[in-house]
Nucleic acid binder design. Structure first.
Lengths: 231, 231
DNA sequence: AGAATAGTGTCTGTCAGACACTATAGA
DNA sequence: TCTATAGTGTCTGACAGACACTATTCT
C-alpha cells in the first residue's frame, strides 16, 4: 500500500474450492479434469480467476465457479487458506485463495453424472491420482480442517439434505472423522445447539421410524466448547 | 486456471498484518501512519505488495513488512483471512491477505518509540481513530480470533519474552479475553501441555519468588479439547 | 417372534471453576 | 507482623463416553 501500483509485478491470483460431500459412506471431493495448460489432462480443484466485472468479492468467484461445475450453490462456504509461492505454478509467483465448501450429494448428483469433466473423487483415491499444482496438499489441509470443525460444531449437517435424521447425521460425522461416536452424545448436542427443529416422521431400513430434523431459519452454526471423541 | 491469463484484469493484491502485543495491561495493535494515497494521513495496518523478486511466499511478504516497521520478527504468525471487494479500495477491486501476528512488547519497544510513523494503538482507541480502508473491521476480526484461540491454546505466550512467570501469562490472557481466569486452571494446562520447561527463579512485586518458564525447543502450539471460562 | 434401527436412563471419567489453605518474600 | 504474590489441595459442576434398556416398525 505504500508504493505505486506499477512498481511491482502483481502476482497471479486465483480462487479455488475444495467442495466436499459424503456419498456411499465416503468423503468425496469435487475434482475437475483440466483441459488447459498448465497440467492439462490432470485433475484439479474447481476454480479460476476473479472476474472483476461480475464478482463483487472472492466469495462470489468461488460460488460462480462451483455453480458452473455443479449447477448448485453449496450449503456451506468458508475460506480455508491462501497458498502462495514462487514455484507452485510454472507461470510464476502465484497466489490461490482456497475455499472449503460442503454440499448435499443429492443437490448435484444428476448434473455430475452427466458431465465427465467434473467428478466426485473419494478422498482415499486422491493420493494415487494425477493431481495438478499442490492441490493434493490443499485437499489434505481442507480435510483436516473439516475433521477439526466436525469435533466442535454441527457443520456436517451441510452435507445433508434439508430434512435429515439423527442416524444420517451420525453416519456423516463418522465418515468425516473416521471413527464412531455415541448416538447419545450427538442427541445431547442437537438439543443443546438449539439450531434444529423437528418435523414429521420417516422410515429407515428395518426399525422404528426416525424423527426428521431441519435447520431452523436464519440460525448460525453453533460452536461447542468441548470436542467430541478425542479418544 | 481455465483461461488465458490476459483475459482478466488481475485484481490488486496486498498483504497486511495485524500485529498484537500486550503492554501496560492493554491489548495493542501496530498501526502505521500512511504517507501515500489512498487514505494518506490516516492510520492503517502495516503491509504492502508482494515483491516477487524477494518474497518466496506471502508469509515472507508479511514478515518483511513487519521487519521494516518494528525491526523484529514476530514470535507467532498465521493467516487470518482474505478481505476482498470492489469497493474497499478506491483504486478498484482489491484483495488483501491479512496475517495475524504476536510479539513481546520488549522485542520492539525501543524501535517503535523512536519512529513516529509506527505506533502501538490500544485496541479500545481504534474505534475513534481515523483508520484507512476496512482496517477497523479487520482488526475486530483479528481480535475475535485471538480471543477464541486464547481459550483453547497457549498462544498468548508469544506475547511474552523468552522467560516468563505464571503470573505474567495469566495477566496477558486476562487482558486478551477481558475476564479473569483461575490461576489453578492455567497451571493445570501448563503442565498438561508439556510445551514448557522450568528455569530458575525471579522476584515479583511483594510476594514469594515466582518460577520462571520457557517454551521448550521445537515444540508446536498445543490445542486443548476444552475451552477456558465460557462463563 | 426376531431383526434392525430409534431413542432414553444413568453411571463414570475428565477437566474447568471455585476457593480455602500453605509458602515465601519484602516492608 | 502484615501484606502481597506464588503455589497446592480438593470439592463441585458440566458434559462426553459407555452401555444397558425400552420403543417401534418390518418381515
Amino acid at each position: 500500500m505504500e508504493y505505486d501500483i506499477n512498481d511491482f509485478k502483481n502476482p497471479l491470483f486465483t480462487v479455488d474450492s475444495v467442495l466436499f460431500t459424503v456419498k456411499d459412506e465416503q468423503l468425496k471431493v469435487l475434482m475437475v479434469k483440466r483441459s488447459n495448460e498448465p497440467f492439462s489432462g490432470r485433475w484439479g480443484l474447481p476454480g479460476g480467476f476473479v472476474d472483476v466485472d461480475r464478482d463483487d468479492t472472492t466469495d462470489m468467484t468461488a460460488l460462480r465457479k462451483l455453480k458452473e461445475k455443479t449447477g448448485a450453490k453449496p450449503q456451506y462456504l468458508e475460506q480455508l487458506q491462501v497458498f502462495s509461492g514462487i514455484s507452485r505454478d510454472p507461470r510464476g509467483f502465484s497466489v490461490t485463495l482456497v475455499y472449503f465448501a460442503l454440499i448435499a450429494e443429492q443437490e448435484v448428483s444428476s448434473r455430475i453424472d452427466t458431465v465427465d469433466e467434473a467428478q466426485w473423487i473419494g478422498i482415499n483415491q486422491i493420493e494415487s491420482l494425477a493431481v495438478a499444482f499442490d492441490h493434493k496438499l490443499i485437499i489434505k489441509q481442507a480435510q483436516e480442517r473439516l475433521q477439526q470443525k466436525t469435533l466442535y460444531s454441527m457443520i456436517p449437517v451441510y452435507c445433508l439434505p434439508e430434512y435429515f435424521t439423527v442416524g444420517q447425521l451420525k453416519s456423516v460425522i463418522e465418515t468425516i472423522i473416521g471413527k464412531t461416536i455415541q448416538r447419545k452424545s450427538l442427541i445431547r448436542r442437537i438439543e443443546a445447539a438449539d439450531m434444529f427443529e423437528t418435523v414429521d416422521e420417516k422410515v429407515k431400513s428395518g426399525g422404528r421410524l426416525a424423527q426428521l430434523y431441519k435447520v431452523k431459519e436464519g440460525v448460525d452454526i453453533v460452536n461447542f466448547e468441548r470436542n467430541l471423541s478425542g479418544a
